[in-house]
Design a protein around this nucleic acid. Structure first.
Lengths: 219, 219
DNA sequence: ATAAATATTTAGACAAAACTAAAAAATAGT
DNA sequence: ACTATTTTTTAGTTTTGTCTAAATATTTAT
């Protein structure tokens, strides 16, 4: 499979073929920053290879083979992200570009050894689940801080609003990706939260909480 | 730069442009398992980009830019090989294919962090020197066991004859890549050697010794 | 139900990187 | 010095993946 084919499969998966919804040509074009006509071309090729189901004008879904291929690429992407963050000390927001390249390295052996080297992680640094070799994965336990149950420990894995202003705010208040967070109390009146962040108590507004993603621990 | 361009530069470097000899079209074609006409095409492109010096029918040399690019790729290749062997426990003979792919990953940051993660190694698992960020590297201290001075410790990093028969012999005699080796005595009569291999004393024929590469330690 | 808007596909081109076949230059052998 | 051989280059195609422009299908709005 070519690199380009892999990228299309991944895009189709992310655009909803994970839930087996048919994905529109236009949506793929937007996602991949390319033209709809190019997408049509590629879809035909993928269809001939039995990786997608395609009927003219009706959008596209992944076949079982296509889905497996997509999951394989996602597995590689996320394992490499873990490597970059855990072993090379990159931060969550620096790794995507590199992982986009690394995910196309072809070697079963390599990715299995990497998996082992990393201790078979189940989630990537953004809290997204890592499919196993055979394509199974845990449901993500990533949710907004506003939706986390009380007294349950989680790890800060992402932001919804990635504006400079918000990131600066986080920085000033010593909230960083990877921090351990527990919600201790929810204020009914304004939806603000009392939290503990790496053992320090804090009070944050609903505004803030609704822009922070937390990954809850799962066994 | 495209992947293909990078591979051509590397091939030209290895074929003698390291010593600034002009490299023949045919030689490149052989090395890259491609046709001479394809090589001519590519050389023209590289020449337009200022990466090689080219005069029709006269062969090709690398420009300074070309040489730097080639060294950059070699640096990446060899650092990834160290990673594969040291961190993922692959053996010397399994890593080349993977490194061929990994060497094309584009990210200065990534390779510098990898370098640091590995402790700034100066040689790869085959005993070949790793160019620094700025393109300088130690001369290889890789040589045949027959040419190693007495009482000088080295590490077994390669074989000249990689026939199954020879590899089987090594296996049977417990000689493996990565073993520490010291030559204690050379027998004038038949050129055989008394060596210590990981503390065990052994006597090996000149035949054997002249097919084993040793990397001598350097500071 | 039909016109307007939107989405999708087709047709034809292009660039990169390869190929084959044929021509031209360089080298070697006598 | 002049063939014969080898090497290199040119010319013309092919494949992959993209593009633009035009044609066709579908959806939406009245």
């Amino acid at each position: 499979m070519t690199r380009s084919e892999e990228n299309y499969l991944k895009a189709i998966y992310h655009l909803g073929s994970s839930q087996n919804k048919a994905v529109a040509t236009n949506a793929i074009a937007r996602q991949m920053d390319t033209k709809p006509s190019s997408v049509t071309d590629m879809i035909k090729r993928l269809s001939e290879k039995g990786l997608v189901n395609y009927r003219k004008y009706q959008g596209v879904t992944l076949t079982q083979n296509g889905r497996n291929a997509a999951l394989g690429i996602i597995r590689k992407h996320r394992l490499w992200e873990v490597f970059l963050v855990e072993k090379l000390n990159f931060s969550w927001d620096e790794v995507h570009e590199m992982a986009e390249q690394l995910e196309h390295i072809k070697s079963e052996q390599l990715i299995d050894r990497l998996d082992e080297h990393l201790g078979f992680p189940k989630f990537d640094p953004h809290g997204d689940p890592i499919p196993s070799k055979s394509g199974v994965f845990k449901k993500s336990n990533k949710r907004l801080l506003t939706e986390v149950p009380l007294d349950t420990e989680g790890i800060c894995v992402g932001v919804k609003d990635s504006s400079a202003a918000f990131l600066k705010f986080l920085d000033k208040n010593n909230i960083a990706l990877g921090d351990k967070i527990v919600v201790r109390e929810r204020e009914e009146f304004d939806g603000s939260l009392f939290i503990e962040i790496d053992e320090n108590k804090m009070h944050i507004s609903n505004q803030i909480a609704s822009n922070l993603y937390i990954q809850l621990e799962v066994l």
